[in-house]
Amino acid sequence: MDWDKLRVFHAVAEAGSFTHAGESLNLSQSAVSRQISALEESLNVPLFHRHARGLILTEQGELLYHTARDVFAKLSMTEAMLTESREHPKGPLKITTTVAFGTTWLTPRAREFLQIYPDIQLSLLLDDTELDLGMREADIAIRMTSPRQPDLIQRHLMTIRFHVYGHVSYLKRKGVPKTIQELDNHDLIAYPADMRAPISNINWLLEAGDPPQGTRTPIMRVNNVYAIYKAVESGLGMAALPDYMVEGSRDMVRVLPELSGPKVETYFVYAEELRHSKRIAVFRDFLVRKVGETTF
Score class of each variant (00 low, 15 high):
R7M: 04
V8H: 05
F9V: 00
A11C: 08
A13I: 00
E14P: 00
E14C: 06
E14S: 08
G16H: 02
T19Q: 12
T19R: 15
E23N: 13
E23F: 15
S24Q: 14
S30T: 09
V32Y: 12
E40G: 08
R50D: 01
R50W: 02
H51R: 06
A52P: 00
T58I: 12
E62G: 07
E62C: 11
Y65G: 03
Y65F: 15
R69N: 13
V71S: 06
F72C: 05
T78V: 10
E79T: 14
T83K: 15
T83L: 15
T83Q: 15
T83W: 15
E84D: 09
K90V: 09
G91Y: 13
L93H: 03
K94E: 01
I95V: 14
T98V: 05
V99Y: 14
L106P: 07
L114H: 00
I116R: 15
S123M: 02
T129E: 08
L133S: 01
G134M: 08
M135N: 01
R136N: 09
D139L: 02
I140K: 02
D151T: 14
L152W: 10
I153Y: 03
I153K: 02
L157G: 12
M158W: 12
H163K: 13
Y165Q: 09
Y165T: 10
H167W: 11
Y170I: 00
L171W: 04
K174W: 12
G175N: 01
T179S: 14
Q181G: 08
D187I: 07
A190E: 07
A190S: 14
A197F: 06
I199M: 09
I202P: 09
N203V: 11
L205G: 10
L205W: 08
L206H: 04
G209L: 05
D210G: 06
I219S: 11
N224F: 10
V225H: 04
A231G: 05
A240G: 11
P242Y: 08
P242L: 14
P242I: 13
D243M: 10
M245C: 12
S249I: 07
S260Y: 06
V269T: 11
A271F: 02
E273K: 01
I280C: 04
V282M: 03
